[in-house]
Amino acid sequence: MSASLQPIAPNLWSEGPNPQLLGARDASGKIVFPIPEGEAANDVEVIKLSRTGTLWSYTKQEFQPKPPYDGPEEFVPFLVGFIELPGEIIVESHIVETTLEELTLGMKMELVISAFDETRSMFAFRPEQPNNEVVR
């Protein structure tokens, strides 16, 4: 991924070689994502979420959504799903570097920062790569 890409929004993931999604723990101990804004941001502790999880469900977006969708001008169908970060939260995300046919419930997934369009980056998950020990 080109380093010149700008994150689609600030504070979604941590910087550095092994980025992690940034969530928050509220006063009751419940984990939320993304980090709340406004009044809801009071009394929360920002935490880094697990880089790996399991596939909870998935589908493929075959048609171009109406605005506010703001993807590449030439629409490319994309995979989307929910990833269960164990003991934390189940997060909706684009899924990359795989095909619909290869996806099954419960498969191991890992976070990657991926190009959303020519100028912006977005968090995504891909099947966990073999022989790729992930730093938690």
Partner: peptide, 20 residues
């Protein structure tokens, strides 16, 4: 960003719920 990235879609929700 949730809308911009094309994830705020009713059709997707039902597909994701049914797939599982």
């Amino acid at each position: 960003w949730y809308g911009q990235t094309g994830m705020m879609m009713t059709t997707q929700f039902f597909a994701l719920k049914m797939q599982r």
